[in-house]
Design a protein around this nucleic acid. Structure first.
Lengths: 205, 205
DNA sequence: ATTTGATTTAACCAACTGGTCAAAAGTAAA
DNA sequence: TTTACTTTTGACCAGTTGGTTAAATCAAAT
């Protein structure tokens, strides 16, 4: 039993991760995953019973990778300005490291909302306290009176969208040199923070 | 030749639109499109030679539906505040009427960037003037000194994201009553405008 | 009514898909 | 070495897929 074979399960997961996230559930082929892992196709079914089970494992793992930061943004009791800066920095950093996961999750979610809802119902984050905190800071005159739900969604939108729309943005702005896009994304960590801060925070005289 | 048969091509396109936009190129089945159109599967190949050709027709049509408003935002010479308000209103209105098209386009774009780039290269919008206009307004002290590219992407992100991420947002905020989501989206027309305006425009004393 | 051309269909096909299974190969203890 | 067990494989299967084809139906002109 050499190292290569012994961790076949890890090899499979790694290959499945790549293929599923790149091609999606419908586009992925079991044979391609097997090839990518350098093993026989039957071995996939030996470790994971079906394509669906393997997909579940990949999806949940991908989903959970993005949860902790969101939980921090929602559940921490720091002032919102501080939470926001930390969140945007960490979140964009994570997405840069896993640029295809957001598109993957959103697409599978759209394909089968009710099933994905079941997969995620143990993962739920509680938002009411978050909304209450924002409402409080609005009452305190720290934040302009925007709907807290809109603020949360805007924050996520600004972080996630450039990755979901990467091909078209790159074609428009960086068609000559795609490496510049990474620079652009790096700049976004501070740009997005400044943008939201400028939008919602009331400047004290 | 009754009306039902004579416009078979239109029936097919309508069915293809529905199935492709809902399931994507990979997920769509020619049989399902034929059933949806109420015709024989072979007739699909009679009017459109292949699944690919049919997909192309649907994709281009969908893509073009969103282009005019973006062109207006980019090419009109109105002051940016005015353009922005008109754009956001019209754009979100169009997406509400075609809520699944953004996800469809972004997904297919991500699946095959180079091919989609070819499909779109006749549709290109010219941005340099747009960037120059924003730069000028920054110089004039109308707009805060944000990177014009970031402003454009932020605007699109805030308009599009709630539709791409609809299932998860709905699960978190509107699990009890999904109709409320439409209300929320309607409110976004003004909310997004106020958000961006508050972020980038300099209040004159 | 017959001819001519376009439209529509049922039956079919080769390629591919996820999945199965019995046998082989490997592993470690007795 | 034999035994008992797990891991890995090649061959195979039934169902599905996009696509084809020859024949049938239809519509209009002669």
């Amino acid at each position: 039993m050499n190292e290569h074979q012994s961790n076949a399960e890890q090899l499979i997961l790694q290959a499945a991760r790549k293929v599923f996230i790149e091609k999606g559930m419908e586009g992925a082929r079991m044979q391609e995953i097997a090839d990518e892992a350098g093993i026989n196709k039957a071995l996939l079914h030996y470790y994971f019973r079906s394509k669906d089970k393997l997909f579940q494992a990949v999806f949940l793992e991908a989903f959970q990778k993005f949860l902790p930061q969101i939980e921090m943004l929602i559940n921490s009791e720091l002032p919102f300005i501080q939470k926001l800066e930390i969140f945007i920095n960490n979140y964009i950093t994570i997405i840069i490291e896993n640029p295809y996961i957001p598109g993957f999750i959103l697409h599978e979610l759209a394909q089968n909302p009710q099933r994905m809802a079941e997969l995620m119902k143990n993962q739920v984050v509680v938002v009411p306290e978050f909304l209450a905190q924002l409402q409080q800071e609005i009452k305190n005159g720290v934040i302009k009176p925007f709907d807290p739900r809109q603020i949360l969604i805007n924050t996520l939108a600004l972080c996630i969208f450039p990755f979901v729309a990467r091909p078209i943005i790159q074609a428009v702005f960086f068609s000559d040199n795609s490496e510049n896009y990474n620079v652009f994304l790096e700049q976004r960590k501070v740009a997005v923070y400044n943008f939201i801060r400028s939008a919602i925070f009331i400047e004290k005289p």
